[in-house]
């Protein structure tokens, strides 16, 4: 009976011990992925910003500029691209909608970001674009990979349509969450005019004819929760200028936008709560369950060996009957 029990325990011990590395290095890379149908919005605000008045072509101080960023997973497009890419793909159709203090549109820039659902590595396919211009991203955007490392990453900048390093600058705690802080600086770079401008009759083409160009610089900061790779907070010190051309009436340059863009407080709170929840799910597969199963496997193996040893112990010797008379020697 003990023998049978020790064999069953041995099978269970191997089962749980094997589950530990299988969960961490086989199941996790396959199960951890961005859902193809994810929908997410984010509101960022720049208080006391500088904004160009297109009517007078002068820069003005305004109390607040709001940026609404929406990302919407396009499931049909993802399935179509998966057929040729041969891997799980996510297609995010995004819109960055900028609203002035009067509630009117300042600019709106659509983009399509296609990436590997597991690694966040960019995938190139027809339709990948920023503001209607075809692009080929070489780096990540919006989100970092699962199990983010303490190193620099390549990050795509939608304004310049270029990929540049985003530097790991240290580990911090943000509202009770351990985060990695990343920073990227984009130096003054000539960038395309948005296709949609706030004044009717003025288009990117008509501005180009005047010889006026648009320049941009930013310092981008992300506080990233490393297990999920999700930024819990982000901000940008963002500046835009129009330079040269007849549109400025002889001036060399005019500020089109300048402001410190930060996530709105209620969105910070909801993002932190969401990331804390998702972090637990990731840690279940990468840490809690693998270590738990390994410990259980070792405990069951020890119990199995103990029972096996007990079953092999020799039985107690039989008692000698002393009443039997000894033979008498002659």
């Amino acid at each position: 009976m003990r023998r049978k029990a020790s064999l069953v325990l041995l099978a269970c011990a191997v089962f749980f011990a094997a589950l530990s590395p299988l969960l961490r290095w086989y199941a996790f890379p396959r199960l951890a992925k961005i859902p193809a149908n994810q929908y997410q919005d984010m509101v960022l605000v720049a208080k006391n910003a500088t904004l160009l008045d297109y009517g007078t072509m002068t820069a003005k101080k305004v109390p607040q500029v709001t940026i609404v960023q929406t990302l919407k997973g396009n499931v049909a497009a993802a399935k179509r691209i998966e057929k040729t890419a041969g891997r799980d793909v996510v297609v995010w159709d995004g819109l960055s909608y900028v609203q002035g203090p009067d509630g009117k549109m300042v600019s709106e820039i659509p983009e399509r970001y296609i990436f590997d659902a597991h690694s966040q590595e960019p995938v190139h396919a027809t339709g990948e674009m920023v503001d209607g211009d075809p692009v080929a991203r070489d780096g990540i955007e919006f989100k970092f990979p699962f199990l983010t490392e303490k190193r620099d990453y390549e990050y795509f900048d939608a304004q310049t349509r270029t990929t540049n390093p985003i530097h790991y600058k240290g580990t911090q705690t943000f509202r009770g969450v351990k985060v990695y802080y990343f920073e990227q600086t984009i130096p003054w770079t000539k960038v395309p005019m948005p296709k949609k401008l706030p004044v009717q009759g003025i288009t990117a083409e008509s501005v180009a004819k005047t010889g006026t160009t648009r320049w941009y610089t930013t310092v981008r900061r992300f506080w990233v929760e490393p297990a999920t790779g999700a930024p819990v907070y982000g901000e940008e010190i963002h500046k835009e200028e129009l330079r040269g051309g007849t549109l400025l009436g002889g001036r060399a340059k005019v500020t089109a936008f300048a402001g410190d863009v930060k996530m709105r407080e209620d969105y910070i709170e909801s993002t932190v709560a969401l990331v804390k929840h998702n972090r637990t799910l990731v840690l279940m597969l990468t840490s809690y369950l693998p270590w738990g199963f390994l410990s259980l496997g070792i405990a069951l193996l020890a119990l199995s060996l103990y029972l096996e040893a007990r079953s092999r112990r020799p039985a107690d010797p039989e008692q000698v009957d002393s009443s039997v008379p000894e033979p008498v020697s002659v």
């Binding site: 919005d41 609404v68 919407k72 159709d93």
Partner: peptide, 8 residues
């Protein structure tokens, strides 16, 4: 795909 729009 979510039926919710890209926000303006």
């Amino acid at each position: 795909t979510s039926p919710k729009p890209l926000l303006t």
